[in-house]
């Protein structure tokens, strides 16, 4: 019983990727083949799929027919035949990818072997990017299924530029600076990014149209502050203290001591009425000032700090002005893919 259940689950997994294909199939024979596959009638699948391939099919339908054959041979343990069928699938649809979580390991390994036996350039991708001409690059990546001599070019009405070439296999990542040999940015327009792979007599090309546009480089705004730095108040209110009355006492005491010290012994003690009047006024004023909120005074450290900060901002703005002069002479290059990969 458990064996039967396992077989059902496995077959259901094998059938699943073909369901979507059957839904889109227009050819009646191919639809019948799909139904037979859904009913686990493998002999009939083989017969009907082969019959469908002898009929007039679209490229997608032919790929589905070979895929049904591949899955069926895989289920029937005819691995070599499954590999041959999957080779036809990837030749017809190089971007075809199986989900290892949804197909049987046998089918997946057969598909993987098929991929390695056919020279393909797959999954050619160009990321949308925008950069200042000469200061950036366009990321280009693709997969070569066999070790091959590969040349990547950008072909457009304005120019044809070789991006890179080499003997590569597997995932390849390139960076195209979008420049002409002279160093200038490639002219604006539509280009086709072509990747040619050659292995002996076998060749394969994949292409991706892209659009290159030019724009003005954004200039930088002047700064009025520096991140993390703030102007400090240039005055500060000192804390209340006894200093006013202390100073009044000190100054008055100085006058009193001086007067007592300078008094002539022959003239007798001088009048203290005048000193009492003025000294008393000074002490009262000092006492009042001690109780009052002190006056704001210049904060020299903050003034110096603000001065240095203003100098820094002025220097930064000078740099920005120079940078903007340079930026006004630069070109902002924007590259974007315009349609999916088209196999040739």
């Amino acid at each position: 019983m458990s064996r039967y259940l396992a077989a059902v689950v496995l077959l259901a997994g094998l059938a699943h990727p073909a369901v979507g294909a059957a839904q889109a199939a227009q050819n009646a024979t191919l639809r019948r083949a799909q139904q037979a596959y859904d009913n686990l009638e493998y002999r009939q699948v083989l017969t009907l799929a082969r019959a469908a391939l002898r009929e007039r099919l679209t490229g997608a339908e032919r790929a589905r027919a070979y895929e049904l054959l591949g899955f069926t041979y895989g289920a029937m343990d005819s691995i070599l035949k499954a590999v041959d069928a999957f080779k036809q699938v990837v030749l017809l649809d190089p971007e075809r990818q199986l989900d290892p979580n949804r197909v049987s390991p046998k089918a997946y390994s057969a598909f993987d072997v098929a991929l390695r036996q056919v020279l393909l350039v797959r999954q050619l991708r160009v990321d949308s990017v925008s950069f200042v001409g000469g200061q950036g690059a366009v990321p280009v990546r693709f997969t070569v299924t066999q070790p091959a001599r590969v040349v990547a070019r950008a072909i457009g009405s304005g120019a044809t530029v070789v991006i890179d070439s080499g003997a590569w296999n597997g995932q390849v990542n390139l960076r195209w600076p979008a420049r002409l040999p002279g160093g200038d940015p490639v002219p604006a327009g539509t280009y086709t990014l072509v990747v040619d792979a050659r292995l002996g007599q076998n060749t394969f090309s994949a292409s991706q149209p892209i659009r290159v546009s030019h724009g003005r480089v954004d200039t930088l705004p002047s700064v009025t502050s520096l991140p993390g730095y703030q102007f400090l108040p240039e005055t500060e209110i000192p804390p209340q203290s006894w200093r006013p009355v202390g100073l009044a006492f000190l100054y008055t005491g100085g006058a009193l001591v001086g007067t007592l010290g300078l008094e002539s012994s022959s003239l007798g003690s001088s009048s203290k009425r005048e000193l009492g009047l003025v000294g008393g006024a000074a002490l009262v004023t000092g006492f009042v000032m001690m109780l009052r909120k002190p006056a704001a005074r210049p904060a020299q450290a903050n003034i110096l700090y603000n001065h240095l900060l203003r100098d820094q901002i002025a220097r930064r703005n000078q740099d920005i002005a120079k940078e903007n002069v340079a930026r006004r002479q630069q070109v902002q290059v924007t590259v974007a893919p315009v349609s999916p990969v088209t196999p040739k």
């Binding site: 200093r243 100054y251 100085g254 000092g286 009052r292």
Partner: peptide
């Protein structure tokens, strides 16, 4: 010698 002991208040000592 002069010293501001508060807002608008100054004491002076001279010799």
């Amino acid at each position: 010698s002069f010293y501001q002991i508060g807002p608008g208040a100054t004491v002076v000592f001279r010799a």
